[in-house]
Design a protein around this nucleic acid. Structure first.
Length: 288
DNA sequence: AGTTGAGCCTGTTCGC
DNA sequence: TGCGAACAGGCTCAAC
């Protein structure tokens, strides 16, 4: 599952391998992969044909490539299992190849969107005046964005009547934090996932954001080295997760701080992993 | 109007 | 052995 650091690696790969190239034929092999392009697959392919690609951008887990005059962008999301690959044109099709973008040049490579579960996809959108595809204008900046405002984030947490993990996954508050990094940063912060955000102090928020950034930067440092191969690297297996996880997927394993077995609890149709000793559940708070 | 939780999708793993 | 259930989860949106 590509997390923000992996998506950043893909962005760098796109920057390296497709910037400035002019699109030739576009082949949509699965309609679901362009479902966010409301005008449909044929329109997607026709509009893209002949367009020159700009420099790839990223916010959270969204990627986009501005087109020619910057009024439109090619937007992508990898979902759970998506990959963007730059492949030799004669390489055999991947089993789950969904979209093929051929270039009108002599470099001999093409861009492929491969996605087993088709949670991800590509689409074309008008840009906002800020240069952001309009459909993601509501997505908050991610914590690695220099313009992310910690004070504004904290103020929003205080106003919300929700829990801290839910807030970490709320794209309108902060983007790019998935289930894995949420559990990891909460473990590092010794915060229980059901802690009401309204009870977080400013130092607690600062600590939490620091750990979110640490986890992401550590993964980026480990996964960010392979992007200058021919492949735009995105297999979702950075190797980071197997070696470095403290909480996520560690049910029954001793907590790396105190030795108490890590617990797994069903949460929002998925799981939350936490240390029952280090991350104490919040006391019931009277609602004012 | 803010908050909640179901649902999308398919390959893999697990238990009966 | 075979089959169905559970699971993985980023994001949206209907419903409360």
């Amino acid at each position: 599952m590509p997390e923000l650091p992996e998506v950043e690696v893909v962005r760098r790969g796109l920057e390296r391998w497709v910037t400035g190239r002019r699109v030739g034929a576009v082949e949509v092999l699965h309609p679901r992969a362009v479902r966010r392009h409301l005008a449909g697959g044929p329109d997607f392919a026709a509009r893209l044909h002949g367009i020159r690609l700009g420099t790839a951008m990223r916010r959270g887990k969204y990627l986009w490539v501005p087109l020619d005059d910057m009024t439109f962008s090619l937007l992508g999301h990898l979902g759970m299992s998506g990959q963007l690959l730059v492949q030799p044109q004669d390489a055999p099709d991947e089993k789950h190849l969904r979209i093929r973008i051929v270039f009108d040049d002599a470099l001999g490579t093409e861009l492929r969107f491969v996605d087993q579960r088709t949670f991800g996809g590509l689409s074309l959108h008008e840009n906002t005046p800020e240069g952001l595809p309009d459909t993601i204008a509501h997505i908050a900046r991610d914590p690695l964005d220099p313009a992310f405002d910690d004070a504004v984030f904290h103020a929003a947490l205080r106003l919300r009547r929700t829990t801290v993990k839910r807030a970490l996954l709320d794209q309108t508050l902060i983007s790019g934090v998935g289930n894995i990094y949420a559990d990891e940063s909460l473990w590092r912060s010794r915060l229980h996932y059901e802690r009401p955000t309204a009870t977080l102090t400013r130092p607690a928020t600062t600590l939490l954001l620091g750990h979110v950034r640490d986890v992401m930067n550590e993964a980026l440092a480990q996964g960010g080295t392979s992007f200058d191969s021919l492949y735009v690297n995105v297999n979702g297996e950075s190797g980071y997760f197997d070696r470095s996880l403290d909480a996520y997927g560690q049910e029954g394993e001793p907590c790396h701080r105190c030795g108490t077995p890590i617990r797994r609890r069903p949460w929002m149709n998925r799981s939350s992993y936490y240390c029952p000793h280090c991350q104490r559940p919040p006391r019931a708070q009277p609602v004012p």
